[in-house]
């Protein structure tokens, strides 16, 4: 474990709980893409299938359980409890256009052609594009609540920190996973224009609004 990965995991945890609390406190999921949350739930479920078979550490197992439980809880709040506030008119990204190609790529490009490894690879590829419905929804509504932009900033930062973690691990541990690194770069690049808007607007107390 290194500081980049620890801060990255905590940033990820923060993002998930900022969103969960926003929905719970405001009893509304306006401006939040339920489709992205479904994709994130799928990412965690397919990635953590080894939860009971591959024990790494208490921290690792605990975080896996928390990530799965909190993301499933978010999907539950959005589609069941606060369904009336779900903005389906703006959450229109066709996620089958993400899941199908990502599924095909996981079959073609992976470390080992076994079910668990293909599902892990599917999860890594899917995570890199899972935020697209959310970014698409913001581009359609033209703006995002400040709390939602904090959520996105923490979520985008987590994988950027993981890139630093992989640089650290390459030099100090000789650890290198090309699939995770390439997908992590794609994932972080997708946030670049959001990061620009966040730093130039939200940090100065302005609301995040995309140029019309």
């Amino acid at each position: 474990m290194n500081i980049f990965r620890l801060v990255g995991d905590l940033s990820h945890l923060l993002a998930i709980f900022v969103l969960l609390l926003k929905i719970w406190k405001s009893r509304s999921c306006a401006g939040v893409s339920g489709k992205s949350q479904i994709l994130f739930a799928l990412v965690f479920i397919t990635r953590y299938l080894d939860l009971f078979t591959n024990f790494i550490s208490v921290y690792n197992s605990l975080m896996k359980v928390i990530f799965i439980a909190s993301t499933v809880a978010t999907v539950y709040l959005m589609y069941i409890k606060f369904k009336a506030t779900y903005d389906s008119n703006h959450d229109t990204f066709r996620i089958e256009f993400l899941v199908v190609p990502v599924g095909g790529l996981a079959f073609l490009v992976n470390h080992d052609f076994t079910p668990l490894e293909i599902l892990w690879t599917f999860s890594i590829y899917l995570e890199s594009v899972a935020i697209l419905p959310q970014l698409f929804m913001i581009s359609k509504t033209g703006e995002a609540e400040t709390i939602t932009s904090h959520y996105l900033f923490a979520l985008g930062s987590y994988r950027a920190l993981y890139l630093l973690n992989w640089i650290y691990r390459y030099y100090f541990e000789g650890y290198f996973d090309l699939i995770a690194v390439v997908a992590g770069c794609v994932q972080t690049i997708l946030y670049c224009d959001f990061f620009y808007l966040y730093i130039t607007k939200v940090m100065w107390g302005k609301k995040l609004s995309l140029p019309a």
Partner: peptide, 10 residues
């Protein structure tokens, strides 16, 4: 099989 990095990350 040996060349797969261990899955010790989240």
């Amino acid at each position: 099989y040996l060349d797969i990095p261990e899955k010790d990350e989240l």
